[in-house]
Amino acid sequence: MEKDFIIRTKNVDFYYGAFRALSDITMDFEKNKVTALIGPSGCGKSTLLRLLNRMNDLIDGTRVEGEILFEGRNIYAPDVDPVEIRQRIGMVFQKPNPFPKSIYNNITYAPKLAGIRESGEIEALVEESLKQAVLWDEVKDILTKSAMTLSGGQQQRLCIARALAMKPDVILMDEPTSALDPISTAKIEELIDTLKKHYTIIIVTHNMQQAARISEYTGFFYLGKVIEFNVTEKIFTNPDVKQTEDYITGRFG
């Protein structure tokens, strides 16, 4: 069967000013699968992730070379609106970052921007997103309370719900569990597992077990390059490159 790749990067180089943070990245991300990006700190995982929804546009003096195709269209083409790209490719950050607004208003932020006004539709969307993020039961009675009063794990699930309410096609997650306790982490991993039926997920993680548990594909990065990109099982049991093996077995910085 022909695989359906939703995002493809072709020979992508990326510069912060004169510093080249990524070199020659060519990767295909399969639709409705989880792809994990691993590698030592500073190797460019977050940079790549932020390239995929044009978040790096917000940093002055950056430059992209090569092509990043989202459903076949180069998202860095001059006629592409980054706002539209970000609406279709959601993002969850390392540190939970809910707005200092009510739980309800956190979820409705993106839909309202997108022009959904009808209150019945909005309410349904809030409930649906919170249920998808397995947060509904915990917050259904306190929707008007400030999101800041939630625990870190709840905040992170709220951020996931907030991204889901936008109905994106892809969700990028940058170490979404690194600030969380094991129970919250387990919840979010479960969540990722159910989400992949409808969404393509690309996740950065420093936790090898996590990558092995939740992803179908894994890419190993080192110094701004993809060292190895393959099916997760292959990467973790029988990698082709020695460096990959050294890294996942912990014999490497």
């Binding site: 929804n53 978040m55 917000l58 706002v83 539209e84 970000r86 609406q87 959601g90 993002m91 950050f93 540190k95 970052n97 809910p98 707005f99 200092p100 607004k101 932020y109 993106a110 921007l113 997108a114 951020c159 907030r162 991204a163 936008m166």
Partner: peptide, 26 residues
């Protein structure tokens, strides 16, 4: 905090929407 702005942009808000709905209220 920068995180609020990033969250807003990542949800497909424009600069002006971010200023009016996130930065000024915060």
């Amino acid at each position: 905090p920068r995180e609020f702005k990033e969250a807003s942009y990542a949800l497909g808000a424009t600069k002006y929407e971010t200023i009016i709905r996130v930065i000024i209220p915060a």
